[in-house]
Design a binder for these strands. Structure first.
Lengths: 238, 238
DNA sequence: CGACCAGGCTTCGTTCAACGATCCGACACG
DNA sequence: CGTGTCGGATCGTTGAACGAAGCCTGGTCG
């Protein structure tokens, strides 16, 4: 790509820039929201905790209004819940929420897999495989939180096979919500370890282009996971 | 249900109230967001229009901060877009956006149909049929905007077959975005009329429990609709 | 004559201080 | 023991203010 045809080059560059939005990182509210989201998904802010406005806007050195804007965004993502005149709290998904999330996932994930038409998008398939390997590596080091992360990356990669930005965003929301549930369930090893090989199996099917089989396997996989989560969530209900 | 056993009745009432959250309608920001959203989907605020903060907060008799909170919510819904230091605008989805939305819909809608397991939820099926009839009635009166509305209700009802709140919410977002592109396309009759009978056919298949056929029909339906939208959107690109 | 640069004006982003409304907890009362 | 009342604390909303960034205008220069 030399400067053989400057006009065409400029045109191409313009298009590229118009699609890949310039990294306008700013907006304090957005950065605050990112920070809070990270605290929540990392488990430093546990479900049910109250987030007082005054305390947090002092701690993060931002105005109360800006903080509230960040709160609104996270409420829209279902990571926080707002109760009238009481404050915002880290969401505590109940069994009904888990059921709804999995009903959604059982629709989206197998369909996304089935829809990755004959491995048209090689990069997306590579991301599935990468997530599997990430999980294996974490397991070998006994890093069970890492395994849990890899598991989430795996499912995000599955949805990525459909190649839709909006579907990816929706999946990120669902996964963030699941993470809240995991934090209520305690140790991650018992739950996530068994899925290492199932992930591998699904990835292999996808790579071989046996998408229908892969989709069925994913559906079964999700039904199993939901059952185990509900089981581990129902008894220890205070 | 007499007062034969007041304690049991009270207990039942308590459970009902605990599940069905009290209707906390308020929050000015939310009401402002609702009002703006309505203006946009009704087509009174056309794509590309700028929404100056000062003008709107005066018109709606709310503070600028409150208005901004409403804006943030609508930006998250992709109904508005925010440009740094320039203001918020009604979104103008391009062909890339339409393609992405349809990629998402082609995954979700057929899968939701396939997933409504053997008409377990009779009410959801009834809503599909109701949307078909709504469209037919509107067409008979020459109300083509009504036909467009009914069409959206039809697709929302299809996703409703899956029975997931979160999926329904996601679908509402996608449909709102589609409405924006419809407003760019002008007259609705040419576009929506042909789908009246296809909707009917899909509803009939669903009612008869032939979900697999219905899903395939929906997939084909969506591919066709996307092609027609792209065709009608590409040429008149100023 | 057209291009470029500087200035002013407008609007957005963010903060601050304040007021009512509402909820929570404690205390007193029957 | 249950009920009602009274602060105290927090949220919801407002209005005004300041800096920063964009747009428009007008003038200058090649």
């Amino acid at each position: 790509m030399t400067a053989a045809d400057p006009d065409r080059a400029a045109q191409a560059a313009l298009e590229a820039l118009s699609t890949a939005h310039v990294a306008q990182t700013s907006s304090t509210a957005e950065r605050v929201a990112d920070a809070l989201r990270e605290q929540v998904v990392e488990g430093r802010l546990l479900p049910g905790v109250r987030l007082g406005e005054q305390a947090f806007c002092e701690a993060m050195r931002v105005s109360r209004n800006t903080l509230r804007e960040a709160f609104s965004q996270l409420v829209a993502e279902r990571i926080l819940v707002r109760e009238q005149h009481r404050g915002v709290f880290v969401a505590t998904p109940g069994v009904a929420d888990v059921a709804d999330v999995y009903r959604s996932r059982r629709v989206v994930e197998p369909a996304a897999v089935r829809h990755g038409e004959l491995g048209r998008d090689q990069a997306a398939i590579a991301r599935v495989r990468a997530a599997v390997e990430e999980g294996r590596a974490a397991a070998e080091q006994g890093d069970w939180v890492g395994v849990a992360d890899a598991n989430q990356h795996f499912h995000r990669a599955l949805v990525g096979l459909a190649g839709s930005t909006r579907l990816d965003a929706q999946m990120d929301l669902l996964l963030a919500e699941m993470r809240l549930t995991f934090h209520r369930m305690g140790t991650h090893r018992d739950f996530h370890e068994p899925y290492l090989e199932r992930n591998d199996a699904v990835a292999a099917l996808v790579e071989r282009g046996e998408l229908e089989k892969a989709a069925l396997e994913v559906a079964d996989y999700l039904a199993d996971a939901e059952a185990r989560i509900v089981a581990s969530l129902s008894p220890p209900r205070p």
